[in-house]
Amino acid sequence: MSLNIIMSLVAVVVLGAIAFVGGSVPGLQSVFGIWIPYAAVAVFFLGFAYRIFKWAKSPVPFRIPTTCGQQKSLSWIKQNKIDNPSSTKAVILRMFFEIVTFRSLFRNTKSEIKGDRISYEWEIWLWLAALAFHYSFLAVLFRHLRFFLEPVPYCVKIVETLDSFFQVGLPVVFASGIVLFAAVLYLFARRVMIPQVKYISLIADYFPLFLILGIAGTGLYMRYFLRVDIVAIKTLTMGLVTLKPLIPANVSSMLFVHLFLISTLLVYFPFSKLMHMGGVFLSPTRNMANNSRMKRHINPWNPDLEFVTYEKYENDFREKMIEAGLPVEKES
């Protein structure tokens, strides 16, 4: 195991331990249950907005979409409108597929040299795991609205019903939590087991994985093993959203671990690679139309530069040009 993995794991374990101890001390419960979550949410939103603002502040001087299909040219040649969009509508469609279905990742192949031949096989697992991870995370997040809204909205209940589709016995088992946990494990295993990916991996890659593993793990543990007091938890969460925070009795210390790891994630988010969530919308190779021959794109800092004009050129070569019978502007 590399140092990066150990340090990331240790960091998450230490964070969890701090919260566990803190959550067991009555005087500190409000710190871990109220003030840190409040601060984390604030940092998340402000940080997120700040990062987006910082990106958006830099202009996009050139129109540089990566074209992944036939351009719009002659009327009888079929354009690939999604992968080589020329209109805003098509760009929106391209972005939609990119963000909702991870279209580019779907293309993933694995190259291998066998004897004197290089083969390229479709490699679907990263795409599948990424999709499973993000959508199960979204489902889990959405289901958690139950803790922040009273009465629980109908749509949350629908998602819960769908999520517990494969249920056997009680308590109701939500697929999303388990898929999330499994997908993170897969992403971690992949990172460690593919030598090339391991070679490029930083703490910044392992830490969020362990953090999310910790969050999902504590959640699953509370729900299926500890069978924590849900009413107490909802009292706490409702207190948070209604800005009348309170720490009810009977709250499991594990909840403070859960909350603290989430708070860590929220604070860490805007300053990490997790900002790919916002960045993907701003990627110039994906969010621009390939129409720069149809419509002029403006560069706000387009510099005025001196170049070798025809006049200078002719001055340099006039005699030779005349001798060769080439037309000139000035005879001497």
């Binding site: 990106w55 958006a56 830099s58 996009v60 490029i200 890659d205 690679k273 790919h276 701003l282």
Partner: peptide
């Protein structure tokens, strides 16, 4: 970084998935 959004975004968003 101030002139090219592409550079700024590309410096920040890579998750090192290895694709």
């Amino acid at each position: 970084l101030d002139k090219y959004r592409s550079l700024k975004v590309f410096m920040d968003v890579c998750v090192r998935c290895g694709a």
